[in-house]
Structures are given as C-alpha cells and as structure tokens.
C-alpha cells in the first residue's frame, strides 16, 4: 500500500510500538521486531525521535531543533518533513 504525503506542520506524531532503541557512538539505532529491519537514525534523526516524545506537533519539533541547531526555517522544515515521511513509510510513526 502506498501512503500519500500527509505530514503537515500541525500534524501530530505517534510512535509505533515494537521497536528496540539503543545508542551507538552518539547515534540512535533501532531494531524493528515487526519488520526485521535495522535503522540508523544518525545524530539529528535521533534528536527528532526524542523530541517527538516531548513535543506533539511537527512545528514544535522544528522550532525546538532550530533552538539547538544553526539552520534556517525553510531548510529545517523541508528536511525534517522528508525525514518524517520516510519514518511514516517505514511504519515507525503514525500521523494524525
């Protein structure tokens, strides 16, 4: 099934359960029990995953990232949206 692009700034993210998360050399890694896939989120991907616990909407996650990292809003929004689309396609998050 092909999922359409549904993520917007006010979208709320929910993490899908059934994944084992760990940290390796400062980067977040994950093993999906459901799919048998191993994911490397990298440093910033791991930061986004952690922020999703604290901040319910995509816009809040982007705002917080811009407090931490030197990046303009347009670049940050486009790249975070693309990353979240990938997570959604892999079935690691649900978008509401």
């Amino acid at each position: 099934m092909i999922k359409e692009s549904v993520i917007q700034a006010d979208s709320q993210l929910t993490k899908v359960e059934g994944n084992i998360v760990s940290s390796m050399d400062g980067e977040m890694v994950m093993l999906s029990i459901n799919s048998g896939k191993y994911y490397n989120f990298g440093e910033i991907g791991g930061e986004i995953w952690r922020l999703a616990d604290e901040f319910p909407t995509v816009k809040e996650i982007i705002d917080e990232l811009r407090n931490i990292y030197e990046v303009d809003e347009e670049t940050c929004t486009a790249q975070v949206m693309e990353f979240l689309e990938h997570l959604n396609k892999e079935g690691l998050i649900e978008v509401n």
């Binding site: 093993l31 191993y38 994911y39 989120f41 910033i44 990292y69 030197e70 990353f83």
Partner: peptide, 17 residues
C-alpha cells in the same frame, strides 16, 4: 552556541532467522 545542522537521514538495513 548552536550546533551545526546536518540533513537527517534514515539508514535502513535488512536483518533474524
């Protein structure tokens, strides 16, 4: 001081028999 930004990428590897 803010950290340097890098594009977030999801690296996917197949793994469990």
């Amino acid at each position: 001081m803010k950290k340097a930004w890098e594009k977030p990428e999801l690296e996917v590897l197949e793994v469990m028999t």
